[in-house]
């Protein structure tokens, strides 16, 4: 062992001439630990994140307000630039819609008649509350948005989120006053869907791109570009029949272009759809007396009775989801057919 370090002799201690190096190493190590804890979904990390997001919500809201105003101003200026063409387009579209209105009324009468013949049970009403997007998620991992609605408004994890165009995503974190919405195009998003008139079952999966992948289509399924895609509700989390998007691409590589513009969300509505699956996936809410309540005002309903199977209150105001609002509003909407 001559000439070298003996394993039995203490090695010369390395002196940290620069304490900054040690600090830097500690900080890098801390990042690694946080990443691992985040990966395994440690409860402490999740709780701390929720609490902090609630704390920063007013700041985020203040920061987002001028941005949204500026965005709206730019889009308005763009629309003014093509005003005459837009008027012509709207006139043509209005003519088409009038035609569709008469057909829809006829179909509605037929459906009502047939349902009365069958003694069919009415579709359940869906309560909802509406709020504004206050922050976007940025990064290679996640496509999400923060909405100024939380458990105080009755929002829980797993609720569907829509805007005027269609499904936007679902809630994945719910703080007291802020909720995180996982967008449809997120890498972790999987939505069971029905495609086209035939109602072909498939899975719309996000890949962080603008469009969704259409997976698990049955062999020989009759799917064509332009087919409408709706939620199937077979996951027991999302209601059936929510508009998702239209099919694009070619056989073997079908994709779904969402109706909602996921990159420019402003006002969204959270549907209070308490499916049985939610009772297993959602941790106990902060306010116990609001558990599984159909709406924030209806807190006396037992947990076993969900809003989705109850008709809407007679005096409840019916509001269109996605209506323009800067503060949360609540309402009741008829479940989509």
């Amino acid at each position: 062992m001559r000439g070298g370090h003996s394993p039995f002799k203490p090695r010369p201690r390395r002196s940290w001439r620069a304490p900054g190096e040690l600090l830097n190493f500690t900080l890098y190590f801390l990042c690694a630990v946080l990443l691992v804890l985040s990966r395994i979904g440690h409860g402490a990390v999740t709780d701390a994140r929720e609490s902090f997001v609630d704390l920063t919500a007013p700041l985020l809201e203040a920061a987002s307000t001028p941005v949204i105003m500026g965005r709206n101003a730019v889009s308005r200026a763009w629309s003014y630039s093509g005003l005459f063409g837009e008027i012509d387009r709207l006139k043509a579209e209005n003519e088409q819609l009038k035609h569709w209105e008469s057909r829809a009324k006829l179909a509605e009468r037929n459906i009502t008649h047939l349902r009365s013949l069958l003694n069919a049970v009415d579709e359940p009403a869906l309560h909802f509350t509406t709020g504004s997007v206050i922050a976007d998620a940025r990064g290679p991992f996640l496509r999400s948005a923060l909405v100024n609605l939380g458990r105080d408004q009755g929002v829980r994890i797993g609720y569907a989120v829509i805007n005027g165009d269609g499904l936007v995503g679902r809630t994945v974190d719910a703080g007291a006053s802020v909720t995180r919405v996982l967008l449809l195009n997120d890498l972790n998003s999987r939505i069971p869907v029905l495609v086209g008139h035939a109602g072909v079952r498939a899975l719309a999966s996000g890949d962080n791109g603008a469009e969704l992948k259409l997976d698990f289509l049955p062999d020989g399924a009759s799917v064509h570009p332009g087919n409408e895609v709706f939620t199937s509700g077979s996951d027991g989390v999302l209601p059936r029949g929510l508009r998702v998007g239209v099919v694009t691409g070619s056989p073997g590589a079908f994709r779904v272009r969402p109706h909602a513009d996921l990159s420019a969300l402003d006002v969204v509505s959270v549907l209070f759809f308490d499916a049985p699956a939610l009772t297993r996936t959602d941790p106990p809410p902060i306010a116990v007396d609001r558990a599984l309540s159909p709406s924030p005002d209806d807190t006396k309903v037992p947990a076993a009775v969900t809003s989705s199977v109850e008709p809407p209150p007679m005096d409840a105001e019916i509001k269109q989801a996605g209506a323009s609002a800067t503060t949360p509003v609540e309402g009741v909407a008829q479940a989509p057919q």
Binding site: C31, V33, L34, L35, A137
Partner: peptide, 24 residues
Amino acid sequence: AYLALLLGLLMDIVSGGPLGFWAL
């Protein structure tokens, strides 16, 4: 550097991504 890490953590929290990513 520790303030850079804290600001990165804030970005992680706000973005909803993995905690520690933007901090790193």
